[in-house]
Computed example of a mutant assay.
Amino acid sequence: MIKKIDINNSKNAEDVLNIQMPSYKVEAEIIGSYEIPPLRDTVYTLQHCRETFFGYYENDVLCGVISIKIDDYDVDIHRLIVHPNHFRKGIAQLLLNFIETKCQIETIKVATGSKNIPAVRFYKKNGFRNIKEVIVNEQLSLTFFEKKL
């Protein structure tokens, strides 16, 4: 079941962090850089990020999260994370589908580490097109994607 998360509730923010940290550590290992800003998040930073959070729950246990910012008819995905214990169950797909069908939007934007091949494949498979690549430092570059609905 997917439902909105009240990130201002400290327990909910902790639950999101408990998904986010192991998920982004896997990405950090894939891309060879631990300079991913979400690995520095805290309950406080989550509560003040101005993102809207939705969670995928199995038996009342949070397994995956998507966070977005909406600007008119555009959605910017800031996080699409699944706990490693729940990889390969289609949870990321369910969360993306939820945003595509429940929000009145025309365009979805997202960025991921260029070396994060599973994420790059996921977005391409879902009809996103590569807009640009930004080199952050020697080890890290980001690929930006966009999808018109």
Rank of each mutant, 00 (worst) to 15 (best):
N116E: 01
N18Q: 09
I105K: 15
F54W: 15
N130V: 02
N59H: 12
S67I: 01
K89T: 01
Y73M: 12
Y24A: 01
P22G: 00
L95V: 00
N116I: 01
L96I: 04
V75W: 09
H48A: 10
E29I: 12
I5V: 05
Q47E: 01
K25T: 02
T45N: 08
K4H: 13
R79G: 01
F98M: 07
D60F: 12
T45M: 09
K4D: 03
D6A: 09
T42D: 04
S114P: 10
I70M: 15
H83Q: 03
E51F: 08
L39A: 02
N137L: 10
I135V: 13
F98A: 03
T45G: 05
S33F: 02
V16C: 03
V26N: 06
K11V: 08
R50T: 00
E27I: 03
S141T: 05
D74T: 05
M21F: 14
E106T: 10
E146Y: 08
A13V: 06
L62A: 09
A13G: 08
I68N: 07
I68A: 04
G90W: 11
A28G: 11
I2C: 12
R88Q: 08
K148M: 07
Y34N: 15
R79H: 05
E133L: 07
N12L: 05
T143K: 10
T45V: 03
P118G: 01
Y56N: 10
I66F: 10
I30N: 04
E138K: 15
V82H: 02
C63S: 08
H78D: 02
S33W: 03
N12H: 09
Q104Y: 12
